[in-house]
Design a protein around this nucleic acid. Structure first.
Length: 534
RNA sequence: GGCCCCUUCAUCUAAUGGUUAGGAUACCGCCCUUUCAAGGCGGCGAUACGGGUUCGAAUCCCGUAGGGGUCACCA
């Protein structure tokens, strides 16, 4: 089925109940793409009809996260637009009126059943393992007089939709074709709660209609309420939109993605140092693919090949490990100046956010091993960078050229910006906590280490640090000669030096690092180590 | 449990009746190498099962199994 030529109006409709969700971004990507492909609009609507779950800054974070990903809506609470307001809490009269309409046309009725009765009913149904669960429609048969009497007595009520009792309800899904539901298995869902607020179902349909939504792209979990939504459109006499139920993003165990088993917050991905374009690319890989096995693509390329009908509806597992790889590819594709800019912005971000992340409870750690380890490292790195930040930023402001030479040395070692924490500190501090054993190489002695350090001291003194390329070559050649003289292989010869210079057994390339540090600092670190070893 | 959806390597996916079932991640090995990476090369590895239809099935049909979603005055 081809997309209709008319411009699509699509929407994403998150509830501001917590951190901005990766599923929201996923839907937004496909919404944005369909809108762009057809020359339509992508709308953000905040569904804040549940006052109990409302989280104050959640809405702002949704705006920011979508902006971060480059998935800006054309219309929304923060953007305005012709069919606003875009916050459901500001559209309450509309829903009341709609409920009134349904009541008048006989498509809905007032239900006075108490929460108590409903709970008891549920219990009985569960105990009997009844095939028919849910509301039994007791109040559907109330006479006008009975309704009037109960209202006069001040009894609270909800408004329920009268679902058909016979036949099948058939609804089209763009991916699945005709979906068929038995009418007698549906229940009369609540439209208006007793507090006068609409339920999701009412508000959603009223707004989609009022906002001219042509395609409802939403997650698969909504399929069970599709007959209800369809009947609502019928009750109002409105033309339903195209429904496209996207696959659900999954945890490793195939269950619906959840924060207990997988990071779901877009803020988490940003704070871990994932690039927005990489995450966006990765999301585009979920249930979709480009020709010729192309896996790395810009949004522009994605759009070029985008076709909603080509979505693969098997629920994809959100594999952070593959995202990790993809993010590394993106980092390596950036030029050093750009990486530097991202890194500086990232460090600034962490300075402000570090405190919030220090002491997350243990049970919020992802369970999967890679994730658990990744999260552990992420926190550690976040801390390292945040601690380093004041010094780094001060130096950076004093000398903007400071970071740039380091970037090429660490670029292909990073998969996330956060991993810069593994390599950056050694360029800003020479206070290392090494032990004598750290200098001793396999099959080597402490004496070998000292000899290597002394040899390197001479080499560094000879080298001309003003000629970077020449110096690296020169030091390399001299090191080889010296190593041979000491009857050592190059690796073991450089081991102690690496420890002295970088404070670690693992580091960016040694000669290049020394060059960045400068001759004076390099010699100082060698001397520090020699003094330490006695 | 009822209803509904889904099913190609561990994972993301390609192949819309004819392929030795392709690519990527992960993993393993080799090469490169100054540690760690990155890179290069190679390896491992899938059509859930059973019936049809057809000359021919991953692809179409039926059944089974498995997985998932959902059954609120939450969205």
């Amino acid at each position: 089925m081809a997309d209709s030529p008319r411009p699509a109006r699509v929407r994403v409709a998150p509830s501001p109940t917590g951190d901005p969700h990766v599923g929201t971004a996923y839907m937004s990507l496909f919404d944005r793409a369909l809108a762009d492909k057809t020359g339509g609009q992508f709308i953000l609507r905040i569904e804040d009809t549940d006052r109990n779950r409302y989280v104050a800054d959640s809405e702002q974070q949704i705006f920011e996260s979508l902006a971060w990903l480059g998935l800006e809506p054309d219309e929304g609470p923060h953007k305005g637009g012709p069919v606003g307001p875009y916050r459901q809490s500001e559209r309450l009269p509309l829903y009341k009126e709609a409920a009134e309409t349904l009541l008048k046309s006989g498509h809905a009725y007032k239900c006075f059943c108490t929460a108590d009765r409903l709970a008891t009913l549920r219990k009985i149904q569960q105990a009997e393992k009844s095939a028919r669960m849910g509301y039994d429609g007791l109040c559907r048969g109330l006479s006008a007089e009975e309704v009037k009497a109960k209202e006069a007595a001040g009894e609270e009520y909800v408004v329920r939709l009268k679902m058909p009792r016979e036949g099948d309800i058939k609804v089209e899904d763009l991916f699945r074709g005709t979906l068929s539901f038995k009418a007698d298995e549906q229940q009369d869902a609540v439209m208006l709660k007793s507090d006068g607020f609409p339920t999701y179902h009412l508000a959603n349909i009223v707004d989609d209609n009022a906002m001219g939504i042509t395609h409802v792209i939403r997650a698969e979990e909504w399929i069970p309420s599709l007959p209800l939504h369809f009947e609502l459109y019928r009750a109002f006499g409105w033309e339903p939109p195209v429904f496209a139920h996207m696959p659900l993003l999954r945890n490793k165990d195939k269950s619906k993605i959840s924060k207990r088993k997988n990071p779901t917050s877009l803020l988490w991905y940003r704070d871990a140092g994932f690039l927005p374009e990489a995450l966006k690319n990765f999301l585009g890989l979920m249930g979709f693919s480009l020709p010729n096995d192309q896996e790395i693509f810009s949004y522009r390329e994605f759009l070029q090949h985008f076709d909603l009908a080509k979505v693969n509806i098997g629920g994809p597992i959100f594999d952070v490990q593959k995202l990790h790889w993809l993010n590394g590819e993106y980092i390596r594709a950036l030029d050093p100046a750009e990486i530097e800019k991202r890194l500086v912005d990232y460090v600034k971000l962490l300075m402000h956010r570090e405190v919030e992340f220090m002491d997350l409870p243990e049970d919020q750690l992802p369970t999967d091993q890679f994730l658990a380890e990744f999260e552990q490292k992420r926190r550690k790195r976040s801390r390292v960078l945040a601690q380093l930040a004041p010094q780094l930023m001060t130096s950076y402001e004093v000398n903007p050229a400071l970071l740039l030479p380091i970037i090429p040395l660490i670029r292909e070692r990073m998969h996330t910006l956060g991993e810069a924490a593994d390599y950056l500190p050694m360029f800003f501090t020479d206070e290392f906590s090494y032990t004598p054993e750290d200098f001793v190489q396999k099959k080597g002695t402490l004496d070998d280490a000292k000899k290597a350090l002394n040899a390197m001291r001479e080499i560094v003194q000879i080298a001309d640090f003003n000629d970077a390329e020449g110096a690296v070559k020169q030091m390399d050649e001299l090191s080889r000669a010296k190593a041979e003289e000491l009857n050592l292989k190059l690796g073991p010869f450089l081991g102690p030096v690496r420890m002295a210079i970088t404070g670690s057994k693992v580091s960016p390339p040694l000669m290049e690092s020394m060059l960045v540090l400068g001759k004076e600092e390099t010699l100082k670190r060698v001397d520090n180590a020699l003094r330490f070893l006695g």
